[in-house]
Design a protein around this nucleic acid. Structure first.
Lengths: 143, 143
DNA sequence: CGCCCTTTCTGGAACAAATCAAGTCTTTGT
DNA sequence: ACAAAGACTTGATTTGTTCCAGAAAGGGCG
């Protein structure tokens, strides 16, 4: 994704194009599942001085317009990824917190329709798989 | 669940039986999906003075031994519920954050097996449904 | 091209949730 | 009942996030 693509994306979402926003979006494109602190550091690497507040504001603006998705597994800080059309899910390592993408096996799966939602109007089903990542499994086996 | 039941539960988990732990467990039995702050208030109602640190410690101990489950939907503070055998999931209101239980429709559902887990060893699939609760839906319709 | 209005960014402070640390008290096995 | 291990209390600290007021930058219009 080029810088121009990012600009188009911003304009189509009705957002102004600023150095900070372009930087945040491209950082998230290159590094999915990044926590806020890392976003700040990476943004500063590519765009020079940017206040942490600006990054928080941008992340909020992008989340509100649906350009990025915010995820926050239990015990983890907020993480962000660019929202892509597919309905993919995440696998989280219980040991180190690493996150991986998992494609939704069967599109709109039947079991993702709640059996008795107590009157809730449901618009999304989010799946989080918990387990051990290869690296942590190897480390555990070695010790 | 009586106080004695809770004591037995604690002993079987290899934990000492203290006033604070009994209080936390019974509070969670009576009020599922409670956030830490509310747990503290309720515990003090039934057990008198208890430091917030004690509650944090107890919740951590109970979580580590598997007696309670910690859940934390994106944008919410940590919430706790007593771990019951069934593999139920949660529905969260986007508007007010209310949480409801949803039974897992089909036990160990096939679509909860990740298609390509990238080498992760998965031991649990957690489903969070997002939507609008009846109360918030009514309020939105009224305005 | 340059002005003005609106939106956004900066810098600093404030806040809430959660954790850390040292010392005291309590539970429990003998 | 006694000692040792574990749990709790008090108080401070860290961490992640948000609030606020003023300065700066985008982008439509003359």
């Amino acid at each position: 994704m080029t810088g121009t693509d990012v600009e188009v994306q911003l304009r189509e979402a009705g957002l102004r194009v600023t150095r900070q926003r372009v930087a945040v979006l491209s950082v998230l494109h290159d590094h999915p599942h990044t926590d806020t602190d890392t976003v700040i550091r990476r943004v500063r690497e590519v765009a020079g001085d940017v206040s942490h507040q600006a990054v928080y504001d941008v992340l909020r603006a992008l989340t509100d317009t649906g350009l990025v998705r915010r995820i926050q597994p239990t015990g983890s800080v907020a993480r962000y990824e660019v929202r892509v059309g597919d309905n993919h899910h995440h696998v989280v390592c219980r040991s180190c917190g690493a996150i991986g993408d998992v494609d939704c096996a069967v599109g709109h799966a039947p079991c993702l329709t709640a059996s008795d939602p107590h009157g809730f109007v449901i618009d999304e089903a989010e799946v989080t798989y918990w387990g051990i990542c290869p690296a942590c499994a190897a480390e555990a086996a070695a010790s």
